[in-house]
Design a protein around this nucleic acid. Structure first.
Lengths: 242, 242
DNA sequence: GATGGCCTGATTGTCGGACAATCATACGAT
DNA sequence: ATCGTATGATTGTCCGACAATCAGGCCATC
């Protein structure tokens, strides 16, 4: 057993084409919004069949590196949108049987710092969108579906106000995963709507006044409230999501 | 302008097939490891051509929902692996011109809590893997490439020790993004190796002793050190990564 | 000048059929 | 029991084809 050989791997053509185009995009040779040559032309350049090119394109398309502007045929290079990426992450976590508790624990660690940084970095525009999100929730919270959506939207606005893409993107999957349980919670505990609205109001106020400590403090309470709600609504914390 | 029509959207066949299979997987009708029928059979069932099925499969494959065990032809259902998902996230962030500062700021907020929770939840096995990661770094840090890899691996071990998948996955993209700058840093600042090794040692010790405060404290210092290193190495913090 | 109709070429979505290479399996020879 | 071999199934890739849609130019009408 002195001689050992590396595993020989044969990469199919559609994969080679996909990585070739991906590299061009990552190296910024192909920039956002630029139009990709038509399939027949790509097939000619790569020296493969159009079917092979198409399989490669589907790969890039689902990765968000290519998109088609609505009502157009040509593919254009695009940067993966945060929401789309977050969807993939939350889907993966759901398939890995992530529990309510894990999501809540992550929110506990992530949201207070986000509130703090948002308070420092928010612009007037950010504040306006946070304010609008508060009002939307307060007005539309009678419908469960709308309420859940606007509760998450509030977090998104605060996240954007940090002006830190990494933090904003990190919280997105958590909001996706929070949604289903939040739906149950809001349905079972009527007073939850008022509590959430109150917390949003206080956080908004603190961010408006640039009161870092208050913003963090109210956010801590806000997140803690979710857990209390779970217990009141009789949702098992170690139950998997989805 | 009283009448308005919704945008009419026509979904191509390969997309319909893809979502159909995706739904089966998400609803757990198709479980992990289960083998997908061959392409011809899928084409028959869906009533479309094999080419159409293949395009759909590429989509699911790149999303990590399907994979082919090496040396096998049939597709099997798989749950997206954390590392693969993290790669997509870090790629997206890189394309969105995320800066060193944003990554560092996120690490500042995320890693101390992770250290804290890991200290509480770690098992003997976790501790052993953290210990091994420390030693690997200490021994292999002469080669820049290995050093960078093992520095990230240390964080991964701590992340796993939290036994919280959400937190562990959240930090993965940050480590990916940290790598290139860490490579420059370690190359330019020779003494960085020793500082990192020292911090790892102290954090490991604290986690071993279940000293939550110490673990958090040393992690804070560890992360802060990265920033100092950037400044010493003359890396602009607001420079984009990639 | 703006609007709408019409034509033409380019492009995509989908189809059918084809074939070599590889995998899975069973069978038989040593 | 181990090793060849034959056979069928499956994938990767190719070719050619056609309808539907898109982009753009040209022209008539108002």
């Amino acid at each position: 057993m002195s001689v050992e050989f590396d595993q020989i791997l044969l990469v199919p053509g559609y994969r080679k084409v996909a990585t070739a185009i991906t590299e061009r995009i990552l190296s910024r040779e192909l920039r956002e919004g630029e139009r990709l040559p038509p399939e027949t032309e790509l097939a000619r350049q790569f020296g493969v069949n159009r079917s092979t090119v198409r399989e490669a394109l589907r790969e890039l398309q689902s990765g968000g590196l290519l998109e088609r502007r609505p009502g157009s045929k040509l593919m254009t290079v695009s940067r993966p949108q945060h929401r789309a990426i977050a969807k993939d992450v939350s889907r993966a976590l759901a398939l890995h049987d992530v529990t309510f508790f894990e999501v809540w624990e992550a929110l506990t660690q992530l949201e207070p710092p986000i509130a703090e940084i948002a308070t420092r970095n928010r612009t007037a525009v950010d504040l306006a969108s946070i304010s609008a999100a508060c009002e939307q929730f307060a007005q539309r919270s009678t419908e469960t579906e709308k309420a859940v959506h606007h509760a998450a939207e509030f977090f998104r606005c605060v996240g954007r106000a940090t002006h830190n893409q990494v933090l904003a993107l990190a919280q997105e999957p958590l909001l996706d995963l929070l949604e289903p349980s939040l739906r149950v919670l809001i349905d079972r505990i009527p007073q939850a709507r008022a509590r959430i609205a109150g917390a949003q109001h206080r956080i908004h106020e603190a961010i408006a006044k640039r009161d870092v400590e208050a913003a963090r403090g109210w956010m801590v309470k806000h997140i803690r409230d979710f857990r209390k709600g779970y217990e009141l609504a009789d949702i098992a914390l170690d139950c998997r999501i989805g």
